[in-house]
């Protein structure tokens, strides 16, 4: 168990190091998020108060689109030179390889989110500073859900033809409960009206717990044919 967690950290560090060297996924994802943000301001010509009503929804749309670019790379990184074979043949269990990849994608997506949040606030005149800390908590929870399911599907689609197209087709419908919860909480936080968010929060947490358990348990079947 301890060795497995350690191996997961090695994998995560390797993924992050190669990503920071090439910045392939990161650059694409950040610039994509920024383009979407600019497009939103054209698509929704709303007053300030009206914009607040949909602010959480738009924010999570940006995040989930950016996330697709990040998780897509996760297992594809191992395809050149057949590196995946070497990782699977090593003594670490399949779940720790998977967990390492999830951690790396999680960190990358969090970076993209933290970069786009101030830009989002700036462009749309949204106050995000006051609610930053609870919002960060929500981002951590929901981003975990996005990455763990996303990386699981990345593992699934790594051998599929047209994998770049297949991944969102499988991933987005699955994310809907998580996104509904996260969007509601975000909107409430940005607007600054508390209300009872426990049901939404529970939804996000249950999603995280359930899919973390399922994917860590089932990933062995996928990786070792």
């Amino acid at each position: 168990m301890k060795q497995g967690l350690l191996s997961a950290l090695f994998i995560a560090r390797k993924d992050l190091r190669t990503e920071f060297r090439t910045k392939e996924a990161l650059n694409a994802s950040v610039s994509f998020a920024l383009v979407v943000l600019v497009l939103f301001s054209f698509a929704f010509d709303l007053g300030r108060d009206e914009f607040y009503d949909i602010s959480g929804g738009l924010l999570w749309l940006v995040y989930v689109f950016a996330g697709a670019l990040i998780v897509n790379r996760s297992f594809i990184r191992e395809v050149p030179n057949d590196c995946l074979d070497v990782l699977i043949a090593s003594p670490m269990p399949a779940w720790s390889l998977f967990l390492g990849k999830v951690i790396a994608s999680f960190v990358l997506l969090m970076i993209v989110e933290l970069v786009s949040l101030p830009v989002y606030g700036l462009l749309n005149n949204i106050h995000w500073v006051d609610s930053f800390w609870p919002h960060l908590g929500l981002m951590i929870l929901a981003t975990w859900g996005i990455t763990i399911t996303g990386v699981a599907f990345s593992a699934v689609t790594v051998n599929v033809r047209l994998r770049e197209l297949m991944l969102p087709v499988l991933h987005y419908p699955m994310l809907i409960p998580l996104l509904i919860g996260a969007m509601q909480i975000s909107t409430a936080l940005l607007k600054g009206d508390g209300g009872d968010l426990s049901a939404d929060l529970r939804l996000v947490v249950v999603f995280d717990a359930m899919f973390s358990a399922l994917s860590l348990y089932l990933i062995e079947f996928i990786l070792v044919g």
């Binding site: 419908p173 699955m174 809907i176 939804l203 899919f211 994917s215 044919g225």
Partner: peptide, 24 residues
Amino acid sequence: TISAFVAIFAAADIPLVWLAIRVH
């Protein structure tokens, strides 16, 4: 194998969709 994996994920998601929609 992959199909079974996806089917299980999808089925696990249905109760959550249910729950999410019930909340709202």
